[in-house]
Design a protein around this nucleic acid. Structure first.
Lengths: 212, 212
DNA sequence: TATATTTTTTGACAAGTGACAAATAATATC
DNA sequence: GATATTATTTGTCACTTGTCAAAAAATATA
């Protein structure tokens, strides 16, 4: 009754701290994507996380730093979904490859709709958040899409439109999931249902590629 | 020096009041679309409008009613751009008609980018604003698109994808203008330049229709 | 067990929020 | 010109915001 409690305490302590941070990050990701940065208060985040007031400041220093931590987490979540798709795509013949990747990207957009929401939000006006997002993630993503675009163009798999428009159409492919509340109210349909995600993935893949 | 000032005063009075409302509405439209409803304060609106504090409450009753007035104004602005396009389209042969309307719609989205911004913003989560927008404008717009979609399908001018996906792709066609700040930072290009608006209109029209 | 460290809890703050009400100024009506 | 109406200006309210600081509790280290 001396060694074991010590170990349990040690894990319990780290576990408690970790859980607090975890709950806060999860609440932050959903609230920032639902309401935007300015419209989300630290107290709202703490309340949804089910933790005490001021724990966000303690664990992350400031609302600004906390937001960045949320973005890191979101991006990691997206990366984990896209990485295997990219790996798998290597074995697919060039013609079908783009279509496959677009479908997987749309599916990922549905699985992590918070990213598109935040991009639509932050992309509107300049500021430290947009700058941070572009510097840390968006630029790299854009370059990746650019590479894929060139490959697709040279293998005649992508229609003749400029990269920029292709990129923003791809990004906009997640709009239906971003606007899931409107979609439900307008059409009565759940944007996240398997059928709907499938339909959207197929529609975007069909439109953004040339049939063989 | 008695008759003239009276007339000027009379016009000046109504003119002054009208100008206050005008300045407020213009400030509201831009601020609501830039930052969203919750993140925009009445004092910010009044400051940008260049009018005194509390004049928004006086002229519109509350922030909520003021927001609705801003939405009416925005919708009117969009309607004025789309109405002539629809009238013109009657003379165009069915095959080319959809393409023409899509191009005009995208151009209108560029001319009034605030609408798409607010839709991306409010479409995310339920609330009185989304409900109001759907009831007053979005539902009607969706039905109009639905009509056009059916016409386009029966004349084989639109690819075989469901209406919902077609609709959200069309709506998202304005994303590049919504995210003009990101676009500029990412690509260095102005999303509102004539060349870019043209490219986007052509790209969406090309992808969402079947070439003859 | 005693002590040091980390985490949680509570208290407080200056600044900002939307809204109400009253005082003042400007304009319309007679 | 006198009076009524409308518009603007100023004052204030209760509430929320992000953050700092200190007290309290929990855990780690010795």
């Amino acid at each position: 009754m001396s060694a074991e409690p010590a170990v349990i305490s040690a894990n319990g302590a780290r576990g408690r701290t970790e859980k607090t941070r975890e709950m806060l990050l999860e609440a932050g990701v959903s609230l920032f994507s639902e309401r935007g940065y300015e419209a989300t208060s630290t107290r709202q985040i703490e309340t949804r996380a089910g933790v005490q007031r001021n724990l966000m400041t303690y664990h992350f220093g400031s609302k600004e730093e906390f937001w960045k931590a949320c973005m890191v987490r979101l991006n990691e979540r997206m990366r984990k979904r896209l990485a295997p798709a990219i790996a798998q795509s290597k074995d697919i013949e060039p013609g079908e490859r783009i279509r496959f990747l677009i479908r997987r990207y749309i599916r990922a957009s549905a699985a992590v709709p918070e990213i598109a929401r935040i991009m639509f939000d932050e992309g509107r006006s300049n500021g430290w958040r947009l700058e941070w997002l572009v510097d840390n993630y968006i630029r790299e993503f854009y370059d990746t899409i650019g590479q894929l675009f060139e490959d697709g163009r040279s293998s005649k798999a992508i229609p003749d439109i400029p990269l920029i428009n292709f990129y923003y159409l791809l990004a906009a492919g997640g709009a239906i999931f971003s606007m899931s509340a409107e979609c439900k109210l307008l059409t009565g349909k759940d944007a996240f249902s398997e059928a709907m995600v499938d339909a959207q993935a197929n529609a975007i893949a069909k439109l953004l590629t040339i049939a063989v």
